[in-house]
Simulated assay, not measured.
Amino acid sequence: MNRRGKVYGSKEFNIDCKLKERIEENGYNTYASLTWKNNERQMFVALNGKGTPKRGPKTRRKSTNAHFLPIPL
Rank of each mutant, 00 (worst) to 15 (best):
2 N>G: 13
3 R>D: 10
4 R>F: 03
4 R>Q: 04
4 R>E: 04
5 G>I: 02
6 K>P: 00
7 V>W: 03
7 V>Y: 05
10 S>Q: 07
11 K>F: 07
11 K>R: 07
12 E>T: 14
13 F>S: 07
13 F>P: 01
15 I>D: 13
15 I>P: 00
17 C>E: 07
19 L>M: 11
19 L>A: 06
20 K>D: 09
20 K>P: 00
22 R>E: 14
22 R>K: 10
23 I>S: 11
24 E>C: 02
26 N>R: 01
26 N>W: 03
28 Y>F: 10
28 Y>P: 02
30 T>Y: 02
33 S>R: 00
33 S>H: 01
34 L>E: 10
35 T>R: 14
36 W>N: 03
36 W>P: 03
37 K>L: 05
39 N>S: 13
41 R>T: 05
41 R>M: 03
42 Q>W: 03
42 Q>K: 08
42 Q>R: 08
44 F>N: 04
44 F>Y: 15
45 V>W: 00
45 V>G: 01
45 V>L: 11
45 V>E: 00
48 N>D: 15
49 G>H: 12
51 G>R: 06
52 T>D: 15
53 P>Y: 09
54 K>S: 08
57 P>I: 04
58 K>N: 14
59 T>M: 08
61 R>E: 15
62 K>F: 12
64 T>Q: 05
65 N>W: 05
65 N>G: 05
68 F>T: 07
68 F>A: 09
73 L>M: 15
73 L>T: 15
